[in-house]
């Protein structure tokens, strides 16, 4: 029963319809979590004793960085699935992930720069954390460029999946960069082995924003996926049915 349900997701028209429904559910939940997180982060949480109010950028910067990295891992996994089983849905989700992932990486870099200026006195430094996240952005953009450069959809998906898998090496580099090198960027405050180094009144809105951003990303993945699937399947019967002709 469960297996059959999962199996059906592999069919483009079933994917198109189910993804549309799931996207609405995910975005509704994401909106609720993000609104609660914004309220908690901007209104309820106290100012930071060192940074004052400007620390509130954390509520978007950290979730954006988490999504940017998580999206890359998902992209590599779906890329591998597409490579091995030649599943159209996996190929489409992989290229959907490059778009959403790139946008969240830009968000992480931009909010980091905006935060860096008042706290470090500079928008940008070439430290290991910032540079490895910039490499992440280039991997996403390289994926999209490579995909556009290859005419045949199947060949493009194969080449892009291999690029995504090779680039996976950058993910642990991003995470451990703050330990391996002497960076201006601080170490993890939440994702570490000991207890989070952040007060509960700040941690709760941060986690709400993180979960909300994750669900939004998941919905966006499906939304992009539907658009790209329809493009690829434009000559099919189900696409004509969806277009109302």
């Amino acid at each position: 029963m469960m297996l059959r349900y999962l199996h059906e997701w592999g069919s483009p028209p079933v994917f198109y319809q189910r993804a549309g429904r799931w996207q609405r559910v995910l975005w509704t939940l994401a909106a609720l979590l993000i609104l609660a997180g914004l309220w908690g982060g901007l209104v309820l949480a106290p100012a930071d004793y060192e940074q004052g109010q400007v620390y509130r950028i954390i509520y978007i910067h950290v979730p954006a960085a988490w999504v940017a990295m998580f999206a890359y891992v998902v992209m590599a996994v779906t890329g591998a699935i597409g490579l091995i089983w030649r599943l159209k849905v996996a190929e489409v989700i992989t290229s959907a992930g490059a778009r959403t992932g790139a946008s969240f990486t830009i968000l992480a870099l931009a909010t980091g720069a905006i935060w860096g200026q008042p706290t470090w006195g500079t928008w940008w430094v070439w430290d290991a954390r910032l540079t490895s996240v910039l490499v992440l952005l280039f991997l996403y953009l390289g994926f999209i460029a490579l995909e556009n450069a290859i005419e045949d959809r199947r060949n493009a998906a194969r080449a892009c999946a291999i690029l995504a898998l090779v680039g996976l090496v950058n993910i642990p580099i991003i995470h451990f960069s703050v330990y391996w090198w002497n960076t201006l960027h601080q170490g993890p405050t939440v994702a570490r082995l000991s207890a989070p180094a952040i007060h509960i009144t700040m941690l709760v809105p941060l986690l709400l924003m993180a979960l909300g951003s994750m669900l939004f990303y998941a919905g966006a993945l499906l939304s992009w996926g539907r658009a790209l699937m329809l493009e690829r399947e434009r000559s099919s019967r189900w696409a004509a049915r969806e277009a109302g002709v």
Partner: peptide, 15 residues
């Protein structure tokens, strides 16, 4: 993605 899907739907209808 919404605009891109709409564009694809128009393309499918035209085809």
């Amino acid at each position: 993605p919404l605009l891109r899907r709409r564009q694809a739907l128009r393309l499918v209808a035209r085809q």
